[in-house]
Design a protein around this nucleic acid. Structure first.
Lengths: 206, 206
DNA sequence: TGCCGTAGGCGTACGACGTACTCTTACGGG
DNA sequence: CCCGTAAGAGTACGTCGTACGCCTACGGCA
């Protein structure tokens, strides 16, 4: 019988995401999101307990677009590879939220479903017990790390240029590798590393 | 002839690190660091341009303890493994700074020297061109991601317990794997994933 | 020995943040 | 039609980073 709600959590999430995409992560404030929705800052607290919960909503909004069904075709490394790439693609559409992912990852239902999907493929491939735990965590660690590296310090960015200009006497390999790195695109970088990891899983003797 | 400085950047860094270790990362404020040093907040701005630069100082303080000389003995995967583990050990002594690492990593001279060391071993092992770039980035991605996972969402933490209690109907593999995960220690988790990656590099056909 | 220029350190203050508390207001069921 | 309930707005407080300007301690020179 009371007054009905005028907003949905999804509206909150997409307003917050719009702010981030437009003005960057530091611009994500309760006031900015309220303004985006044409409401007052305090009204948001009817929907989220605090700013932290709003961030979690944003993370889930970004991740909710990934297909969590186990990939269907190909060898098991290919199938796992497809699932990891799906996660990367979803994040790539909103690069500015990257720093929020490691912090709120564990609260996301999508991550749970995605993990279940990956584990299903690994299980079919014969991974059990500790070996499956290690495989999953390695894939997760690589995905989290590589996505962050890609957006916080890309090979195409100024860091690489700086390294390429380093004194060759003190940093011979670094200077040479940085020069090489400018010719490696983000897809090649991510896919190359992922392939290395999957190959390692495939030959795992344990 | 002017008045000499009464603090060193190293003193700033270790005071900031003391604050973080004692009260956590959110407690890292200009005011708190100033209090730690018995000075006023604004005095810090004679040494750093802004809070960001203070964070960079903390990161370098933490990383400066890692031995960046190329590991000497063993096969090249063992040698690379030793260097990655050194990085993890240094970070492990100050877990609360983990969220700062991905952001300030590229400014650290220690990271530059460490990278040079790793590249040296990879070069001796025959890695050149794109293949060496991909190998380095994969190692970096794994290290960054695994260290974060370890401290932001450890296998021994509440997240794993929550997953173990998930409805078995909807998440059969996840529930089972989470139960297994409670028996995997952090060293085994990190080392296992690292070994997978190194094995993948060793069989890399390109 | 004394003074003076330089730069270090401090006090004050401002705007923006998250959010606690209180009041007002709009709705839907009797 | 009216009243109970919960939604939303207004106000305000404490904390943050840090801009600005003043005071002061020091080392070199007279």
């Amino acid at each position: 019988m009371p007054r009905p709600r005028s907003l949905t959590p999804a509206q909150l999430a997409s307003a917050a995401l719009a702010v981030i995409d437009r003005d960057g992560l530091p611009a994500l404030t309760m006031r900015a999101v309220a303004a985006e929705l044409g409401t007052s800052p305090m009204a948001l607290y009817r929907y989220v307990a605090d700013r932290d919960e709003l961030e979690a909503l944003v993370v889930e909004e970004v991740l909710s677009t990934v297909d969590t069904a186990p990939a269907a075709d190909g060898s098991w490394p290919d199938r796992v590879g497809v699932m990891v790439r799906r996660m990367r693609l979803a994040v790539g559409r909103h690069p500015a939220v990257v720093p929020l992912l490691p912090v709120h990852r564990h609260r996301s239902p999508t991550v749970l479903r995605w993990t279940e999907g990956v584990l299903g493929v690994l299980a079919e491939a014969g991974f059990v017990g500790t070996r499956r735990v290690v495989a999953l965590r390695a894939l997760l660690a690589y995905a989290v790390g590589a996505i962050q590296l890609e957006h916080l310090g890309p090979l195409s960015g100024p860091g690489t240029t700086t390294m390429a200009a380093l004194p060759v006497g003190e940093f011979p390999h670094l200077a040479a590798t940085a020069a090489d790195a400018r010719r490696v695109g983000p897809d090649e970088e991510f896919g190359g590393g992922l392939d290395v990891l999957l190959r390692g899983l495939a030959v795992d003797p344990d």
